[in-house]
Amino acid sequence: MISKLLLPNRFKMIGWCILIPAAILGIALTIKPLYTIPLPEIHAKVFAIIADQILGPTTYFGFTDVELTNTIAGVLFIIGALLVSFSKQKREDEFIANLRLSSLLWAVLANYILLLLTFVFVYGDSFLTVMEYSMFTVLIIFIIRFNYILYRSSKTASDEK
């Protein structure tokens, strides 16, 4: 039933190939102000539903000039993470379906507990950074938890007959 929503296994590898560079780009963008990492800036005129500037008019359904590196990193990260998360395992069976669901539950819960803590204990500009990260953490926590349990299950399997 649930497997109808999953992509074939080959998309998992494609997902990793998108996710890893996007993650590296994302990390580089985060620490760029601290270490002056030379990153290309991509300026383009793009369509926006809403685009507001700090000092300037707000555009609705119009074209606006933006720097695209952040957008590209974010979009690629989400696409990669979705492909990794929602592609079938080589042998997708009931235990793995079960593990997938429990990992999703776990990820949503862990994410909101973290978000709740940061809501209470983080203020100011740093909170914006927290919000930025929380866009990605559900998928990150899911991928880590799902693959960790799967790895643990196959590890104990290999050292016994």
Partner: peptide, 17 residues
Amino acid sequence: LVSRQTINAMEANKYVP
């Protein structure tokens, strides 16, 4: 027709088939 992990999880009593 299941994964090896499934057999392992069942033997470890971590999964009810």
